Simulated scan of single mutants.
Amino acid sequence: MSLTSATPLLIAVLVLALTFAAVLRWWPRLAGRGWRRVAGRVGLLCLIQVLLLATVGLVANRTFLLYGSWAELAGHSKPAPPPGRAAADKPVRVLGRQATGTPGGGPPQVAGVIEKVMVHGARSAVDVPAYVYLPPEYFQKGNEDKKFPTTVVLTGFPGMAENLIKGLDYPKKAWSLVKEKKTRPMILVMLRPTTESARNTQCIDVPGGPRSETFFGTDLPKAVSATYRTTPQHAGGAARGWAVMGDSTGGYCALKLALQHPESYAAGVGLSADYKPEVDGYSGDLFHGNGAEERRSDLLWSLDHLPQGKTSFLVTTSTQGEANLKPTQKFIEKVKGPARVSSITLDHGGHNFATWRREIPPALEWISNRIGRD
């Protein structure tokens, strides 16, 4: 029984309603003094509060797709399947197809398509689920040999890749922007910023653990390029065909990958991004005493101490409602040539879907002007 299905929510609502009815019936019998009656009233109030919070939590999880399973909620990672011959021979395995949800729908030549895939990392030795949006132009007659610029899109953590389709509407926004002639068609590769189901690896190669940076920085572009008609990652030694963007933790990953892997990504977009990794119960020990890697993972430190490639960055924040305003301003100050930086600063906007929905269209336009051009 999935956490995001309607069944747990319906059960919670039913149990809450029955408990509330029971409280109304039994409350008069618990009136008066005496420790048993007082304890009974306190117990019923606590039970109602617990059930109410559980119901609200299930509603929030269904809305924002934070956790996909009970194991994820409990913080237990599901180990990736071991790499095998099938995975090695087929770096991207298509598991299914679904409609893009564009207005009016239609065949792939009109609406595009979303493929649910499993991406195998050759060097990182992990299999990671993702969704690939292929625009209508990918299937249209005359474009059989045409290659398309590609953008990797990352969720926050916790969060599910489905958020990018259902909650933030990336495919529909990309489709609409092309129809409005504001962007050129591009492929979107949508996934979480982690290589494990419940561990927040934050695009870092953990000593003795998941090689998340290797997967996102090297394996993912190579696997997708071997499967789909993507614009080459680089030409003449400079990246030009690929970008990476994300929100919150995904925004941190996007900026980290663009900064530290300019050979793979020509542009990086951080929507409400963090600028250094969070080390907590969800991440576990990311560095195991490796101070050099810990410093490198601080993006503000990296801008000061590491070479900056020919990469473009877009960062977003709000003067009211975002906690990353000052770090974003510091990031902008520290970017030096040949790298370039642009920014969006809203008057107000919290760390939430409503803010990111406002920022995604101009961010996609910005990306379209920076990748895949000859």
Results as ranks from 00 to 15, higher is better:
S2R: 11
L3S: 04
L3C: 06
T7N: 03
L9D: 08
A21L: 14
W35M: 06
R37Y: 11
A39V: 03
R41A: 09
F64Y: 14
L65F: 06
G68M: 06
S69L: 09
A71M: 10
A71P: 00
H76E: 13
G84V: 07
A86Q: 14
V94D: 11
L95N: 10
G96H: 06
P103V: 00
Q109I: 02
V110D: 02
V132F: 01
Y133V: 05
P135M: 02
Q140T: 13
K146N: 00
T150P: 00
A161F: 00
K166C: 00
K172V: 15
E196G: 09
N200R: 07
Q202F: 07
V206R: 15
P207A: 12
P207D: 07
R211E: 08
F216P: 06
D219N: 06
V224A: 08
P232Y: 04
P232C: 12
Q233L: 15
H234F: 00
G236P: 01
A238S: 10
A238K: 12
A254R: 10
V269C: 07
L271I: 12
S272W: 02
S283A: 15
E294G: 04
E294R: 15
S297V: 03
S297Y: 07
L303A: 09
L306P: 01
K310D: 14
N324A: 13
K330S: 12
I332F: 10
P338D: 09
A339Q: 11
V341S: 10
S343Q: 15
I344Y: 04
T345W: 01
D347N: 12
H348L: 03
G349Y: 03
G350I: 09
R358T: 12
R358D: 10
P361E: 01
P362F: 08
R373C: 03
R373D: 12
